[in-house]
Nucleic acid binder design. Structure first.
Ligand SMILES: [Mn+2]
Ligand SMILES: [Mn+2]
Ligand SMILES: [Zn+2]
Ligand SMILES: [Zn+2]
Lengths: 140, 140
DNA sequence: ATTTTAATTTAGAATGCTTCTAATCCATTG
DNA sequence: CAATGGATTAGAAGCATTCTAAATTAAAAT
């Protein structure tokens, strides 16, 4: 029964090595929470709470360090949904989001939603890094 | 020469009264900086600095209070461009933004840019409050 | 005009998220 | 099994923003 999990752990470890980071106990624990299973959107605090509950020995500082590092190497994407905290998305492919403002929760737009036409040229001296679309939702 | 300014002041005062707020020295001073002249995007800190330089007697707390109140009554719009600070837009009409990430500066998209097709339905129980598009720019 | 009233402003403290510091720990290499 | 350099950590610091409670002020009432 622990077999599949051990394999998943090995994959996670390889994933961390592949981007040039040491597979420490903390990084493996966090990466398991992030990358095994469906794609997800987390805040630093949520991930820290999950890690604590599931017995991954890690400090909040390391959660922040690890999230930044994972973003830097392209394992995670930071989603800008509001000024109060950062969200991290395990799906790094190009896609857009609903943001439930009453619950502080991100949700992917259904595929095929939103096609942007007439994208403007970048002002002189600048180049477009990316285009973020956030559909803000409130309770009906 | 002070004539036009006095008239503009009166308009600003009327604008403040019109939304049910008392036209105090601080609100009038801030509203003059915000609403006389072209549309603009400011942070609390920028507006506070401008007020101080131009002799408007106001505390940082009041700048924050006033920006929130102006948003609440529809004189300003808050633009969510990133997790580090809030931006306030004197143009409350529906439009989208460039965000110069190296300068922390907002700029309006040229009119006619971006038309969103296939906007998704809101998930059950939610309704769409608004759609924000931010085109993030870096130095070329 | 003076007094009364409630709204507004304010300095400074508090908050919440995030980053930094510098001491300790540990994965890796030889 | 050392040695070593990166990683982790507790706690402090940073920064934008909000809160508190006392002082001020605009507007209403006299
Ligand atoms: Mn903030
Ligand atoms: Mn923040
Ligand atoms: Zn997503
Ligand atoms: Zn704008």
């Amino acid at each position: 029964m622990g077999n599949k999990m051990v394999i998943a752990d090995k994959n996670v470890e390889l994933k961390i090595r592949a981007v040039g980071l040491k597979p420490t106990r903390q990084r493996i624990g966090l990466a398991r929470l992030l990358f095994i299973g469906c794609a997800r959107h987390v805040t630093a605090d949520e991930l820290f709470a999950e890690a604590s509950e599931s017995g991954v020995p890690v400090s909040l500082a390391t959660v922040y360090n690890t999230l930044r590092q994972f973003v830097d190497v392209g394992l995670l994407r930071e989603v800008l949904a509001g000024p109060e905290r950062s969200y991290f998305d395990t799906d790094v492919s190009h896609h857009h989001h609903f943001f439930h403002v009453d619950e502080n929760r991100l949700e992917d737009l259904p595929p095929g939603s939103i096609s942007i036409d007439d994208l403007p040229n970048a002002p002189a001296g600048s180049k477009i890094e990316r285009v973020d679309v956030v559909v803000r939702l409130t309770r009906k």
